[in-house]
Amino acid sequence: MNNLNAAELCQGVSYSNSTAEFGSADNAPVVVVDTAYCRAVVSLLGAQVLSFIPRGGRDWLWLSPRARFTEGQAIRGGIPLCLPWFGVNRHQPGLPKHGFLRSREWQLRAAECMADGAVRLRFEISSAEGEFTQFPWRYQVVAEMVFSDTLRLQLTISNSSATTMPLSFAMHSYLAVHGLDSAVVSGLDGQHFLDNTDELRRKLLRGEQRFEGEVDRVFEGVRTDQRIETSERRLRVSGTGCDTVIVWNPGAVLARTMADVGDSYGQYVCVERGRAFADEIELDAGAEWRAEMCLSQAP
């Protein structure tokens, strides 16, 4: 199964590479969406949105200036797709963190210019034979993205195995901020969370989420939208079929140990939607799960 060729792309969609777009040495293939609504860049590696700039605005996403674009290595920033599990695999901790698919190349199978001027892209990937000894289920994933004055990302995960498949995932959005000390996340007041900086102890958030030092929190069973407010902008993160909210920033101490973050830790917060921990899914044989996350401007 191959990518669409350049002649099959709709108006406003083109192929480029990571060198031309971000100055990287890796020259990895990317897809560019350039319309009256926005300019966006998506890597074929990981089907990962790397940039989303609404017309007249600034990028909603953060991409590390030290990001690498090499198959088998995760790209730091944008919206990585963590599949078919999120974080450390709870059943087999020795498996790669965040699954296989964020560091594999996906296939672009459709590029559609919609009647309202938006663009829809569809990427597909299937489980690889080499994974089967580690994760003995066969699955397919479709990622559909709609680019307008909002960014919509829909995942459809199908289990083509004969047995029930454990599934957790996250749409791991790195949201750009201009000053971490001014970043505030609302919509989680009164929610319990698992604190990954304190052995996953269960705690209660009172008020807004702020960022003072390392923050690594998993909120399960969340039905509300989140609002991210900084001195520059207000964004809303909403979702269906993805009731787990993960809020993360490494803080200065941990960031110093991360080669692709370093002093840049204050330029982003992660507010992710997915299904993890108590929200993990047991996906029946032949069944599929659909989830959607939307980033939009908040009033």
Score class of each variant (00 low, 15 high):
residue 38 C to N: 02
residue 88 V to I: 01
residue 2 N to M: 11
residue 62 W to Q: 03
residue 229 E to P: 11
residue 220 E to G: 04
residue 27 N to E: 14
residue 153 L to C: 11
residue 120 R to Q: 08
residue 160 S to K: 09
residue 53 I to E: 06
residue 51 S to T: 15
residue 20 A to V: 13
residue 17 N to K: 02
residue 194 L to A: 14
residue 198 D to C: 15
residue 58 R to F: 12
residue 57 G to W: 10
residue 33 V to H: 07
residue 51 S to V: 10
residue 243 D to I: 02
residue 17 N to I: 00
residue 83 L to T: 00
residue 18 S to W: 01
residue 31 V to D: 01
residue 126 S to E: 12
residue 63 L to F: 04
residue 41 V to M: 07
residue 271 V to A: 00
residue 293 M to L: 07
residue 231 S to A: 13
residue 246 I to H: 04
residue 258 M to E: 09
residue 11 Q to Y: 10
residue 288 E to L: 08
residue 6 A to F: 14
residue 234 R to G: 06
residue 150 T to F: 12
residue 153 L to P: 04
residue 247 V to C: 13
residue 295 L to R: 02
residue 236 R to A: 06
residue 139 Y to T: 01
residue 286 G to Q: 09
residue 30 V to E: 09
residue 273 R to P: 00
residue 235 L to K: 04
residue 10 C to I: 10
residue 67 A to I: 02
residue 181 D to S: 15
residue 60 W to V: 07
residue 241 G to Q: 00
residue 207 G to T: 05
residue 31 V to L: 10
residue 289 W to D: 05
residue 153 L to T: 04
residue 186 S to K: 05
residue 201 R to C: 14
residue 184 V to A: 11
residue 22 F to R: 06
residue 228 I to N: 02
residue 265 Y to F: 12
residue 72 G to I: 07
residue 25 A to Q: 14
residue 135 F to W: 10
residue 56 G to W: 03
residue 292 E to T: 13
residue 66 R to D: 13
residue 292 E to W: 04
residue 178 H to W: 15
residue 59 D to H: 07
residue 38 C to R: 02
residue 98 H to L: 00
residue 175 L to T: 08
residue 72 G to F: 06
residue 6 A to S: 15
residue 2 N to G: 12
residue 191 Q to S: 15
